[in-house]
Design a protein around this nucleic acid. Structure first.
Length: 556
RNA sequence: UGGGCCGUCGCCAAGUGGUAAGGCACCGGGUUUUGAUCCCGGCAUUCGUAGGUUCGAUCCCUACCCGGCCAGCCA
């Protein structure tokens, strides 16, 4: 669990502390989380959610959930619903639920106001001409020939735009600022455009829609937002945010503060690209357990607690940062380790016959469900002559640093006997199909041989057949976002399905809400989408492994 | 070569005029029937570079260098 009393501070909290000390906003703190409903939320949004809701919580303020729904062509109710679910699942409750579309009428009135102030005009250039006249990074733009239309004409044209008298692209409302500005956002930015699209909420009421820059600042003001926190790419937009609020008589003038967006190694957080993976079926939907989406992480079994802790640890700064996967993984393990029941599951089974064990004998061993927490109780594990062990736990000619089972070698079966491998049986292809072993009848629960190797096992007769799904990083490169063709960097081993995994009978008690540890392998949970008659387990995260397999390069 | 932002250990990140917190990673050691957990220890004479101010600079000033961001009728 996150230690909220040790909440790390950051430059935004310092600013808020200052504001409160100065009595700004009457000491109130109001934030908002403003997603566009054009896709599912991902780990990057989690950072923003934790920041905005976290700040509101810690300063006894408010945080609204506001959908930035000004582009009906890309937005949908499906996304709105999914986003609400994800925010709540992460553990946050919004003070008020709003939509930018709630303000369309008000926004329109303000636009009329801007025209009357001679600060906005209807421009009849087409999109391409506007682009050409915007200039470049090093050359100033050219003023539109429509820039000096008189106020009456602008008012009439704008009203007619709303009334649907024009086609898409025929006119646009622009702010009258400065075509020579070094900041391109100030070169008479478009405020409204015509779109004959059905909006998820306002349906066909409108055919003109306000642009982000114009909408966001006014929405913030109308909601009494005090600190409008957004990512770095909006830094250049702040002068425009301030310009709109300075020109108009809005209720307040919130302060926009920008912070660095989150980048995690081996993932992407571009909704466009995530959407591509989904629509081209490279993954099993937005909630594929390999996806960096909130819903994907949820299905994977990652807890909201770990995600919140992760967001706490990475901090809030203005520095573009790349976070290593290990930070997230560590948060997950820290959360899961103390609360997960232990179980033995053989993912990739190898049959073992214990030759000196009586044919029909069965025994029950008792094992702790958690090595350090007696509260989690005990369970019994059946043992018999034929068992399965992990293929990776046997090496025919073991290297010196391999202390599991090998030909002629002895190993301890976790919670049971010590066994020694006496023979290896292979098929025609030369593949190992079975091991013959001998057990030491006096070794259970004892430690007379001080064996270093301890492996997990499952009694063949009692095993439940389950499917295990082992996930690896979705991409092969640390920064897939920088790769042109995202598909080419997909890791084709990111999912491996083991349909014949064997687990001890106690697995019957596992519910969809549980997270468990398969000893020596990692933390797992049931897959909500595939578990029906058959149990399907997702690997959430591996256990830390300080041993690098022989013949394999270090994972670094 | 326009505007704006950033630069403290491999990856994050505190500190901001008085002589470098913490986490992850990594490396040792201890406990352990999970090569897990847990525990103990190690890990920046140095804060992009070069000057300057100062008794003293990561922190102030100047210049330079590196790296992102911006030319949607997207957000």
């Amino acid at each position: 669990m996150s230690n909220s009393s040790a909440q790390s501070s950051n430059f935004i909290r310092h600013i808020i502390d200052q504001d409160i000390a100065n009595g700004k906003n009457d000491g109130k703190v109001v934030t908002r989380f403003p997603p566009e409903p054009n896709g599912y939320l991902h780990i990057g949004h989690a950072k923003s959610i934790c920041l905005n809701f976290g700040v509101a919580r810690d300063y006894q303020g408010q945080c609204n959930l506001r959908f930035d729904d000004t582009n009906p062509e890309k937005e949908s109710q499906e996304y709105i619903d999914a986003i609400k679910k994800d925010v709540q699942w992460l553990g946050f409750n919004w003070s008020e639920l709003r939509h930018a579309s709630d303000y369309f009428e008000k926004l329109y009135e303000y636009a009329v106001e801007l025209i009357k102030l001679n600060k906005a005009y209807v421009c009849s250039l087409n999109a391409e001409d506007i682009r050409k006249q915007r200039g470049t990074l090093t050359e100033p733009g050219i003023e539109s020939p429509y820039r000096n239309r008189n106020i009456e004409e602008n008012l009439e044209l704008f009203a007619d735009m709303r009334a649907g008298k024009y086609k898409e692209g025929e006119h646009v409302l622009r702010a009258k600022i400065d075509m020579g500005s070094g900041n391109i956002n100030l070169r008479d930015p478009v405020l409204y455009r015509i779109k004959y699209a059905t909006h998820p909420r306002t349906q066909d009421k409108w055919c003109i829609y306000p642009m982000y820059d114009y909408t966001h600042c006014i929405s913030d003001s109308l909601e009494g937002i005090t600190h409008s926190l957004c990512t770095l790419e909006f830094e250049d937009h702040r002068p425009l945010y301030d310009w709109v609020l300075d020109e108009l008589k809005t209720p307040s003038h919130p302060q926009q503060i920008e912070f660095a967006r989150l980048s995690v190694e081996y993932t992407i957080s571009s909704k466009r690209k995530l959407n591509l993976l989904v629509s081209d079926k490279h993954v099993d939907g937005w909630d594929d357990p390999r996806m960096p989406t909130i819903s994907g992480m949820r299905r994977r079994g990652i807890t909201p607690e770990s995600i919140r802790e992760f967001c706490d640890r990475i901090g809030i700064t203005k520095k573009d940062a790349f976070i290593e996967m290990s930070v997230l993984e560590n948060c997950i393990r820290e959360d899961l380790d103390p609360r997960s029941n232990r179980l033995m599951c053989v993912i990739n089974p190898l049959k073992v016959v214990i030759e000196n064990y009586p044919d029909d004998k069965e025994e029950e061993f008792t094992a702790k469900n958690h090595p350090k927490d007696p509260e989690q109780g005990k369970r019994s594990i059946p043992f018999s002559k034929i068992i399965y062990i992990e293929r990776d736990d046997f090496m025919e000619e073991p290297t010196k640093d391999f202390f599991r089972l090998g030909s002629g070698k002895e190993v301890r079966l976790r919670n049971a006997y010590d066994i020694k491998c006496t023979d290896v049986i292979k098929n025609d292809m030369g593949e190992i199909v079975e091991l013959l072993c001998e057990y030491d009848p006096d070794s259970a629960g004892k430690n007379k041989k001080k064996l270093k190797g301890i492996i997990h096992w499952v009694s063949a007769k009692h095993a439940i057949n389950v499917e295990t799904r082992i996930y690896d990083r979705l991409f092969n490169t640390p920064n897939p976002g920088a790769v042109e063709d995202i598909i080419s960097t997909l890791n084709n081993k990111s999912l491996s399905i083991h349909k014949d995994s064997k687990i001890e009978p106690h697995a019957k008690t596992i519910t969809l809400e549980d997270r468990v540890q398969f000893e020596r392998q990692g933390f797992f949970c049931l897959d909500s989408k595939h578990t029906k008659e058959k149990l399907v387990f997702n690997r959430i995260v591996t256990l830390r492994d300080s041993w690098t397999k022989p013949g394999q390069a270090s994972k670094k």
